[in-house]
């Protein structure tokens, strides 16, 4: 299965959790320790199980997520 890498532009994230809710591999979680410049807890990557399915990025209303496929 393909491997992928998710990058979150933290200052665009509003912590809505839609990305977290649709990730089939539970790669994302809202940070419990950090806040961004707007005061939200941004989503962060918690493991390296990403399969580059892009579900998180497609659901992100703020276009904060970039997905790369590791060849």
């Amino acid at each position: 299965m393909a491997k992928g890498k998710v990058t979150i532009d933290e200052n665009y994230c509003k912590g809505c959790e839609l990305c977290v809710s649709v990730c089939p591999k539970k790669v994302l979680k809202l940070s419990e320790t950090r806040i961004n410049e707007a005061g939200y807890n941004p989503a962060e990557v918690v493991n390296d199980d990403c399969i580059a399915c892009t579900s998180c990025a497609r659901m992100c209303p703020d276009s904060a997520i970039t997905v790369e496929k590791i060849d």
């Binding site: 992928g4 892009t54 990025a57 276009s63 970039t66 997905v67 790369e68």
Partner: peptide
Amino acid sequence: MSVVYEKS
């Protein structure tokens, strides 16, 4: 690495 999804 190839980008498969990015901001439009």
